[in-house]
Amino acid sequence: MIEVERLTKTYGDARGIDDITFSVGKGEILGFLGPNGAGKTTTMRILTCFMSASSGSAKVAGYDIFEDSLKVRSKIGYLPETVPLYTDMQVPVYLKFVAGLKDVPWKKINHKVAEVMEQVGLTHMAHKFIGELSKGYRQRVGLAQALVNDPEVLILDEPTIGLDPKQIVEIRSLIKGLGGGRTIMLSSHILPEVSMLCERVIIIDEGKIKAMDTPDNLMSRLHAAGRVQARIDGPKEKVLKALREIGGAKKVDVVSDSGATSMYVVEFADGKAGAHLIPRAVTSGGWDLHELTPMRLSLEDIFIRIVTEEEIKQ
């Protein structure tokens, strides 16, 4: 559904994105993850034919974005990051305008508008001007205008930014319900969001793709270099010293102290699994081991590692 090849965009001398290649299959939900200025919006603006790329090519819904831009544009729904809307229009009037431009057949316009308003939960806001709506409802209007032509491909640029936690949850479940055969590409820098919504994640930083995998695989790729959590009953200083002496242990910290026992986190150097050495170190010190849990790296950790260019061992 989306095929991007060696896409590059420069703004004058400044970098936008640099040689990006990826593809998204039909019905797939792809997360586009990256810090500020990574090039997420740039990529999306090119795919939606708002901007031209400096070089490279891309196909969306089977059409070339440069040669068949009108066809591409009639097949997509786009929610820009800033959710720009005409504040002086009433919600249904605005949506009818969009439906008209997006080639919804005349006779179906009213029906379609009512349907998307229902779908995104806007029906009770029908009499309001867009300018009077709260951020959460504007976001819904933004989603509604993206959906009004039943697009094959949905491109959502940071769809939950600036919303309160309750709205975030609602919008996320809304997006989750939008799948079903529809190809969705959404950008974010909120990691749990991406792992919750997406089947595949692309991590992009400074205009380049840094990693591309399923959220689970990304986490397990880093698992080997994992961390282990241990609850140990014993004198803190001595335990710390003993743990640090374990081969391969890179970093040892006390994370919590509850009376007699303390929780330690031992981080091993990449590729060295050393969790099995902990019980021996503890018993030879004459202390008790209460708990030993391997810790999976959270997506946040992975993200920070990848963007701070720590190498990922396969």
Binding site: C49, F50, R73, Y78, P84, V98, D103
Partner: peptide, 8 residues
Amino acid sequence: ELLLTYPL
């Protein structure tokens, strides 16, 4: 940004 991504 939205206007120019509609099919017109």
